[in-house]
C-alpha cells in the first residue's frame, strides 16, 4: 500500500497553465484506497477542471498504474483521446506517474504527493522508484524522479560526473539527469531545467499525525 495525498488545487492548476485539454488518469490500487486518485476523485477532478474552463479529453482509472504493460494495453483503445490532450494528469503515487510517463510519449503531471509506503512496496515491481518524499518533483523532471534516478539525489541538475551518459559510481547505471534531459527535450519542456528547486522539506517524509491516528495505520503497523 502506497499512501498518496492530492496536491493543493492551486499547485495542480499551475502545472496545467497554458494547456486547454487534459486526459485524466486514476489508479484503482493504492490511490483509490488513499482517496487521492480513485474513480471518485477522478470524477471530481474532471468537474473541477471543467469548472475552470479546461476540456477533459477523456478519463480512465486503471489498476494499477505502476504496471507499465497494463497501462500501455489499457490506454491503446483510448489513444485518440490521449493524443487530443495537451497532457495527462496522473492521479496517483510517484511510481505510477513515472510508469505512465515512461509508457506514453506525453507530458505527465503529478496530481499527488507520495507520503509513505505504508508497510509494503508497490503493487507491481517495475524500474521506477519513489522516494516517498511527500513533495513530488515529477512535474519539473519529465516524470523521472531525480531523488531516485540520480545517485546523489540532486534536484537542480547533473553533478557533471557522468561519462558517456553513465553515472560515475556505477558504469552500468544511466545518469538520471541525462535521462531527465532527454525526456524534457522530447516533451519540449527544456525550460523546466531553468527552475530553481529550493531545499527540500524533508520533514514532509514523516507521516502526518492524522494518518498515524487512523485505525488503518494501527492495523498495518501492529506486530
Amino acid at each position: 500500500m502506497i499512501v498518496s495525498a492530492q496536491k493543493p488545487w492551486e499547485e495542480i492548476l499551475g502545472y496545467l497553465e497554458g494547456e486547454n485539454s487534459i486526459f485524466l488518469l486514476g489508479c484503482n490500487g493504492c490511490a483509490q484506497a488513499s482517496g487521492s486518485g480513485g474513480p471518485e476523485q477522478v470524477a471530481e477532478m474532471k468537474e473541477k477542471l471543467e469548472g475552470v474552463g479546461k476540456k477533459v479529453s477523456g478519463t480512465m482509472v486503471i489498476d494499477f498504474l505502476c504496471q507499465k504493460a497494463l497501462v500501455k494495453s489499457r490506454l491503446r483503445p483510448r489513444m485518440e483521446q490521449v493524443a487530443a490532450a495537451d497532457s495527462i494528469l496522473v492521479m496517483t503515487c510517484g511510481l505510477g506517474v513515472q510508469a505512465v510517463a515512461a509508457s506514453v510519449a506525453k507530458v505527465c503531471h503529478p496530481a499527488c504527493d507520495t507520503v509513505n509506503m505504508g508497510g509494503s512496496r508497490g503493487e507491481w515491481k517495475g524500474d521506477e522508484r519513489c522516494y516517498e518524499c511527500g513533495e513530488c518533483l515529477l512535474e519539473y523532471t519529465g516524470g523521472i524522479c531525480p531523488l531516485t534516478a540520480c545517485t546523489k539525489s540532486l534536484t537542480n541538475g547533473a553533478c557533471g560526473g557522468a561519462s558517456n551518459g553513465k553515472c560515475e559510481l556505477a558504469p552500468e547505471k544511466d545518469c538520471g539527469w541525462e535521462l531527465i534531459y532527454e525526456r524534457l527535450k522530447r516533451n519540449n519542456q527544456l525550460d523546466k531545467l531553468r527552475r530553481f528547486i529550493p531545499p527540500k522539506s524533508w520533514d514532509k517524509m514523516a507521516p502526518d499525525p492524522k494518518v498515524r491516528a487512523t485505525a488503518r495505520w494501527a492495523l498495518e503497523n501492529s506486530g
Binding site: N156, G157, G160, S163, N164, G165, C175, E178, Y181, R194
Partner: peptide, 21 residues
C-alpha cells in the same frame, strides 16, 4: 564550477542550465 567539455549533448546542455541557475 563548470565543466566546459562533455561527451553527450545532455551533459553539455545540463551544464549550461545549471550554470545559469
Amino acid at each position: 564550477v563548470v565543466t566546459p567539455e562533455a561527451d553527450t549533448e545532455a551533459k553539455r546542455e545540463l551544464q549550461f542550465y545549471k550554470m545559469e541557475k
